[in-house]
Design a protein around this nucleic acid. Structure first.
Lengths: 230, 230
DNA sequence: GTTTGTGAAGGATTTCACAGCA
DNA sequence: TGCTGTGAAATCCTTCACAAAC
């Protein structure tokens, strides 16, 4: 029944603090709830692909292996999206959730570290269709700086802050070796970045107000072996 | 303060049920605690690299951005590893935690799906040093079956069950396109696999007793944008 | 009849705070 | 003195159960 996406590292209490939020959206939504919303979006999008117009919390719950009550409660943090006796309109619920999450716009993103992993990330075709555009690439190595990789010309990390402003980059993706990850993350924070996707195997220190999510398959494997009985 | 690695999907209640556990290890440890243990292992290993012998829960907590009380409580599920007034011996705590997680042995692993992502996974150098050995690779495409990729010869998925037994494979890594992910996961489950690392963007259905952890950078990004203020 | 939205109840997890030991 | 280990308290999250709406 546990439905939780990989590993996140956040410098934030589990419950979002009262950041006063102009757009009238509620301000004490638990972090776990926010992390489940993208799952709802994904499931709804799959449902509408298969031609359904309306879905109940019961059906969604069956799809996502979670209880209908939890789904209704989660949604109730943000408004009343359903119709009693009928359920939710698939397309409009998806649209509402996208809007809540800020997915109804595109986000400029940069990748720092153009080694093996960074190259894989910039050439991964899954980001752009979801509105995450990689618009700059950086590396510390002078041999790599100046190369063009997947249509991006790799720039020196010393230009990071400038380019972040120039290109209105809001999200940093860190693919440098673990030894340099903390300093790169510090540099992103200094450049004003508030959201970081970290592929390096470490728990970085970031100030309050900066969100870091980690991608670490080894960590995932290491917590699964506990449950293997033999 | 939230320290959680990406997305996991587990067919297990948040609190581990009473699976009677021969080796005298406790049987009602919350899942969140299990997910934090690898973070402790990683931090301890970094600490010992920097020449420290002893660490307090306060120091560990500072490193991992979590409270000392939580660390002590987590450890107390498994035993009494510290010395009052001094703290924990870094090396021996790391060893104890590795043993609890089953990381003091190697695990045979297989990757299913030898497209772009699967190739990146089998050539990722981070698994083997942690004891996760990729010993077989599978694909559905006849043009790929028979190729040798990173020293593995790619086999047909129809041979999955047989090879899993033959090579004593305990963990499956799914890198097939999302349309085929559920059927591949079903096949792994049929073959007796209890631990699955899923790179496909879907929440798979698995029976109780099977653990799935998902790796989905898009999902991580989608929950971060909520917090970006503008 | 069906399904939502939601207070209230019930669990689970985190934090507190301090006894006890080195 | 310093720090662990741990019950108790506090907080957070999920589930229940039902009135209201369709």
């Amino acid at each position: 029944m546990d439905q939780r996406a990989f590993w996140t590292c956040t410098a934030r209490p589990m419950t979002t603090p009262n950041i006063s939020n102009d757009s009238g959206s509620p301000s004490n939504v638990p972090e776990v709830v926010i992390q489940r919303l993208p799952l709802y979006v994904r499931a709804l999008s799959q449902f509408s692909d298969s031609g359904n117009n309306v879905i109940s919390s019961e059906q969604l719950g069956r799809r996502l292996q979670m209880t209908p009550a939890q789904i209704r409660k989660d949604l109730s943090y943000f408004g009343r999206f359903g119709k009693q006796g009928r359920g939710y309109n698939v397309a409009s619920l998806e649209q509402r959730l996208r809007s809540i999450l800020g997915l109804d716009r595109a986000w400029n993103t940069t990748v720092i570290g153009m080694g093996r992993l960074g190259r894989a990330v910039v050439s991964y075709p899954g980001f752009a269709p979801e509105g995450f555009n990689i618009v700059a690439a950086f590396d510390a190595d002078d041999d790599i700086v100046g190369q063009t990789i997947s249509g991006l010309d790799v720039q020196s990390i010393s230009a990071l802050s400038e380019i972040v402003k120039e290109k209105d980059i809001k999200i940093g993706i860190v693919t440098v070796p673990v030894e340099h990850a903390q300093e790169v993350i510090d540099a992103l924070v200094d450049a004003g970045i508030k959201s970081i996707l970290n592929y390096a195997p470490l728990s970085p220190k970031v100030p309050d107000g900066v969100t870091v999510r980690g991608i670490d398959p080894v960590l995932s494997l290491q917590s699964m072996t506990y449950y293997i009985n033999e």
